[in-house]
């Protein structure tokens, strides 16, 4: 398929950026979105232009490195990460707008790459447990009630990519923060530090009462 890409190009944090238009041809529907960008970058390199900078790592949807706001949606039109988004989600002749995460907490470093160290600072403020954990313990070494394990797992699914901040109209990191807080506070390993990690004006029983309510 043949596509028109409008990509945010920004040389460095100080220089103002702008959308640049590129045409790409011979894009297979089986390519991932990042492979499509790789194709564009190869063409740009061969033409002697600067390739588009974007973040990526595992390319299998578990690391949280890739980003991109595609046509106004964080990670694009499918409910997955950009690396797991395939070109079959687009049609031949489409124009695709590709932008970086936009938030003052995530300043642009270059093109589509943003500085997400603000998330590290949130983690440093309590998103960890102090006890030495050693090697991975046996799964049944510390019994965890099934509902608590499910609740914790649901929140541990957050891979810290920053899409919540990018998508929130208010540029807020509440989903990331609450995912970490809920994940750690409910488990026996994280619970001892719950009072220093987070502070709530709700009594502890309210969470259980709300969870049990229909």
């Amino acid at each position: 398929m043949k596509l028109t890409l409008r990509v945010w190009r920004q040389q460095n944090p100080e220089t103002p950026g702008a959308m640049a238009t590129y045409e790409v041809d011979n894009i297979s529907a089986d390519m991932s979105f990042l492979e499509m960008l790789d194709t564009l970058n190869e063409e740009l390199t061969l033409a002697g232009d600067e390739p588009v900078a974007f973040d990526h790592d595992c390319r299998e949807g578990i690391c949280g490195a890739c980003s991109l706001v595609i046509n106004g949606d964080a990670h694009g039109p499918e409910r997955t990460t950009t690396c797991q988004l395939h070109m079959r989600s687009f049609a031949d002749g489409d124009t695709i707008d590709i932008e970086p995460w936009r938030a003052s907490a995530f300043p642009v470093i270059k093109d589509l790459v943003v500085d997400r160290s603000s998330f590290d600072r949130i983690i440093q403020s309590g998103g960890y447990i102090s006890a030495p954990t050693g090697t991975a313990p046996d799964a049944h070494a510390t019994p965890v009630p099934k509902p608590d394990a499910d609740f914790a797992f649901e929140h541990a699914e957050c891979i810290g990519c920053g899409a919540c901040v990018a998508a929130c109209p208010n540029g807020s990191a509440m989903l990331f923060t609450s995912a970490k807080v809920n994940h750690l506070n409910v488990l026996p390993q994280g619970a001892p530090e719950r009072e220093t990690r987070s502070w709530t004006w709700w009594p502890r029983w309210t969470r259980r009462a709300l969870a049990a309510a229909p």
């Binding site: 409008r6 959308m19 706001v69 949606d73 707008d97 936009r102 003052s104 208010n170 540029g171 807020s172």
Partner: peptide
């Protein structure tokens, strides 16, 4: 005020 400050550069693709 905090919301506006949290996203000084708006998205080009408005949805």
């Amino acid at each position: 005020r905090r919301d506006i400050k949290a996203r000084p550069a708006k998205y080009v693709h408005k949805k």
